[in-house]
């Protein structure tokens, strides 16, 4: 564990909490992509199946359980409790176009051709693009509430911090995992455009609004 990894995990946790609290407090999930939330649930489920057969540390186990629970909790709030507020007409990204290529790639490029390993690889590939439906929703409506922007910023920061974590681990522990690194860089790049808008607009108190 190093400071980048810890801060990355905390940003991730904070992003998830921001989203849950936003939906709960406003009694609305307007502006949030249910498709992205489904993809994240698929990501965590396929990755954290190793809860059954691998123990890393209490920290690791607790975080995995929290991510899984929060992810399914978000889906419950969006698709059941506050379904009436869900922006279904704008959330039109076809997630099969992300799931199918991630599955095929996981079968071809992996560390070992074993069921759990392939599921882990699939989760890494899918996570790298899971935010696309959310970014697509923001681009379709042309704006995002500040709180949604904060959520996206924390989620992007988590990925950027993980890159620093991998650089650190490469030098300090001689540890690296090319699959995670390449997918993580792809994922971080997807946030770059958003980071720019966040820093130039949201932090100056303006709403995140795309040019018409």
């Amino acid at each position: 564990m190093n400071i980048f990894r810890l801060l990355g995990d905390l940003s991730h946790l904070l992003a998830i909490i921001i989203l849950l609290v936003k939906i709960w407090k406003t009694r609305s999930c307007a502006g949030i992509s249910g498709k992205s939330q489904i993809l994240f649930a698929v990501v965590y489920t396929s990755r954290y199946l190793d809860l059954i057969n691998a123990f890393i540390s209490p920290y690791n186990t607790i975080m995995k359980i929290v991510f899984l629970a929060a992810s399914y909790g978000t889906i419950y709030l969006m698709y059941m409790k506050f379904k009436a507020t869900y922006d279904v007409n704008h959330d039109t990204f076809r997630i099969e176009f992300l799931i199918a290529p991630a599955a095929v790639l996981a079968l071809i490029v992996n560390h070992a051709f074993e069921p759990l390993e392939i599921l882990w690889t699939f989760s890494i590939y899918l996570e790298s693009v899971a935010i696309l439906p959310q970014l697509f929703l923001v681009s379709k409506t042309g704006e995002a509430e500040s709180i949604t922007s904060h959520y996206l910023f924390m989620l992007g920061s988590y990925r950027a911090l993980y890159i620093f974590n991998w650089i650190y681990r490469y030098y300090a522990e001689n540890h690296y995992d090319l699959i995670a690194i390449v997918a993580g860089i792809v994922q971080t790049v997807l946030y770059c455009d958003f980071f720019y808008l966040y820093i130039t607009k949201v932090l100056k108190g303006k709403k995140l609004q795309l040019p018409a």
């Binding site: 995990d9 990755r47 995992d177």
Partner: peptide
């Protein structure tokens, strides 16, 4: 080859 138990990140 890395085994699944080596995936120590979240």
């Amino acid at each position: 080859m890395k085994k699944n138990s080596n995936h120590d990140e979240l």
